[in-house]
Write a protein that binds this DNA or RNA. Structure first.
Ligand SMILES: [Mn+2]
Ligand SMILES: [Mn+2]
Ligand SMILES: [Zn+2]
Ligand SMILES: [Zn+2]
Lengths: 157, 157
DNA sequence: AGCTAAATCGAGAATGATTCCTGATTTAGG
DNA sequence: CCTAAATCAGGAATCATTCTCGATTTAGCT
């Protein structure tokens, strides 16, 4: 049976690439598509729980019985470098991953550690004030609100 | 030589205590003062570089040749629980410590990782909007601006 | 469809940060 | 002083993350 040529790899927006992942502009690194990485990204995009590498590993074991944790970390690094996925350092110290690269903010529960997405606009005056006062040019802003999530707040009272 | 009784330990503001460090209200844990912990706190208060545990260990070795890294971590935990010191999870994954418990915000350099204190007020409307929109009550807000610090920005161009 | 080079994989070892354990020392009270 | 509890130093243990390496897969090219 004749097979249709698979679609070209949709290259990630290079402008989003993290600085520490720069590759030589003359001979850019070739990327092979792999099912593991594709599923990893799908999984990250289909949740808003900001899972850890271990969470993702657990979630994919059923699908890929031979999957190894190293593969999860390796692919997360690729996605982060592409700018497709963001790392969210957590208060506990274990890294969490965010499949939503749109700028947005978080509410972090002090009790259970859950991280919830927020759709709140930060006044742009803030970054201009930053630049005037400190001569610092910020290209991203991240706001974390801390408190008790509804569940933990209910349990307490 | 008769010694003046040493001043009572100035107990940290209990209202600032981190939730995960709660102790039984009936028999509160007794705290002995130790030189190691006092110097650790002084060191944290005298800098704005948000050092790591290893940084602090290095900085104190001269003074306490037998100091162990475990002691640094153990005391940092105490200070964090008291609310005297704050943990600042960094993008690299290693925890950093902040001796300034006053609410303030940070500028993080994408290149060198330095964290700089900012004195910028966040409009209080933001937290009230949060509460109206999401029914979430936040007791702290943390804003991180990301970009290149002056040094790294100069080097690049 | 075959051929090859580069990319990626899985397994497991290595690393690095942080925590835990233990017996010795220090502190706070009485 | 005396004692109990807190803290220490040193070292082992744990946990997350990275690295190594030989085997496998992918992409590009006849
Ligand atoms: Mn998010
Ligand atoms: Mn600070
Ligand atoms: Zn919660
Ligand atoms: Zn810098």
């Amino acid at each position: 049976m004749r097979r249709v040529s698979s679609p070209r790899i949709p290259h990630a927006d290079p402008s989003a690439q993290r600085a520490e992942c720069a590759e030589p502009a003359d001979r850019p690194r070739r990327r092979n598509r792999t099912v593991q990485r594709e599923r990893l990204l799908e999984m990250l995009r289909s949740t808003d729980t900001h899972p850890t590498a271990a969470d993702l590993f657990e979630g994919l074991r059923g699908e890929f019985p031979r999957l190894s944790l190293g593969t999860v970390y390796r692919n997360l690094e690729v996605l982060v470098c592409e700018g497709t996925v963001e790392q969210v350092p957590s208060q506990s110290g274990v890294m969490r991953y965010d499949g939503n690269p749109q700028p947005h903010h978080h509410f972090v529960c002090d009790a259970c550690g859950d991280i919830r997405d927020l759709d709140i606009q930060l006044p742009s005056a803030l970054t201009t004030r930053l630049q005037r006062r400190y001569k610092l040019r910020a290209d991203r802003v991240r706001v974390d609100f801390f408190g008790l999530c509804e569940t933990c707040s209910d349990r307490d009272s």
